[in-house]
Design a protein around this nucleic acid. Structure first.
Lengths: 229, 229
DNA sequence: CGAATACTTGATAGTCCTCAACTCAAGTGG
DNA sequence: CCACTTGAGTTGAGGACTATCAAGTATTCG
């Protein structure tokens, strides 16, 4: 199930109804349209907000990239999402943050202070947009559960590469992996070694090309998509 | 990482800041307060709505239980959530459902047709409540990603039992597993055999007692919580 | 240029999956 | 009421995939 499938020429997990799964977490210009937002800069590896901190703000990436994650006491880390320019994050059900976030590279982030008190957001348009974004993030989390619950390492890597290409792609088939191997591993529920091995394997089979450690060229989209679709 | 840790006397994954993770997906009485809802009955194993179907309604479990899941073409299934009386489900970012749902046992479900057209939900209170519920489900999905990405089978089972006890508990330490072993397996990203083995193991160590196939008594909460906290 | 860090590659081990047989429970029909 | 059937769940043996541990290579940054 997890370590799945008929190894040779497997056709990859496909959704019934033949639907696409991953897609960008769009922002719907939530914060940029509001005058009350301010912009802050965060250097590489510094915290934007921490687990348990009070959720007083909404955030939107302007430049750079951010990761959100949960830390377990013994050091295990699960990265829930990567956020790129335009992505909104920091939405919470309660008054405190359930996870931590920090900048992957030097980044600038727009902050919007929540309207004070519950229901003070008398702007229907705002709440409506917020609802859309939250629902999109929910969908992303559910898709990620499918990846973590059903897919093997090969399929996870292929899914990740295609997703990154869609959200952070450059020059068509050349994509930048702005995050470290450890980040990728913690996002995909794998170890850094397994991530490295699967990438090397894909390069070996000429499915991708490892231009440098942080740049990947997608050479055979079809093969990749057969592993994810 | 995944198949984790120092096997003997491991203390389980603990969140930094010592926070609790799982908790019920509360409804905030979204539908029950609205006059436009109708109630439908679904017999065991029948579909409430299917992946790809148009998302015209919101749903709330009245009696019984519902599972939501994603199906891959090769038969792999990931159950995202179980819903119990009071839980709202069927919230989507787009106009079609991203996953399927069906009744685990004979159930009655309240339906609320979405206000026609975008932004026609001129009731701020409604959108606000909806936002709360969506954010809660997002949190649940994120927590589930931690389970799927970081925890071993033992820890997943313990987390599941405690969560079920909280959401569907009876008589304090006696809980009903209303779903099949296969459902549990597909929810936890395991196989049915592994689920069975871990339950037997817990019974052997007197952490739990398997009263019958569908009833479990939690005998040693401390041990369970050490595996999850 | 050198040290620290990131990444890759190899060998081994462990957890969970797969396949298979068995037990148990529930429902049916004679 | 009991043999029969069927599906669900348990248990066992073996294997596969990924983790772990370790060493080596590449990259980055002062």
């Amino acid at each position: 199930m997890m370590h799945s499938g008929p190894a040779p020429v497997q056709c990859g997990p496909k959704l019934v109804h033949g639907e696409r799964r991953a897609r960008p977490i769009s922002s719907a210009d939530l914060l940029s349209s509001l005058p009350t937002s301010i912009t802050k800069r965060f250097t590489r590896d510094t915290e934007v907000f921490g687990q348990g901190g009070s959720a007083d703000y909404l955030y939107e990436v302007r430049t750079g990239a951010v990761r959100s994650y949960t830390l377990l006491e013994d050091g295990r880390r699960q990265i829930g999402s990567f956020f790129f320019p335009g992505d909104v994050f920091g939405i919470e059900a309660g008054i405190t943050h359930q996870f931590s976030t920090d900048a992957i590279v030097d980044s600038s982030v727009a902050l919007l202070k929540w309207p004070a008190g519950p229901m003070a957001a008398h702007d229907l348009q705002f709440v409506y947009k917020l609802q859309i974004i939250t629902a999109e993030q929910l969908r992303h989390a559910q898709e990620h559960s499918v990846l973590l619950g059903c897919m093997n390492a090969r399929e996870r890597m292929a899914t990740f590469l295609l997703d990154m290409g869609r959200r952070y792609g450059l020059a068509g088939d050349l994509i930048e992996l702005i995050m470290s191997r450890q980040d990728i591993a913690d996002y995909l529920g794998l170890t850094i070694e397994t991530v490295s091995r699967r990438l090397s394997e894909m390069a070996e089979s000429e499915t991708i090309e490892l231009t440098s450690t942080r740049w990947v060229r997608l050479r055979n989209l079809r093969t990749l998509m057969e592993l994810t679709q």
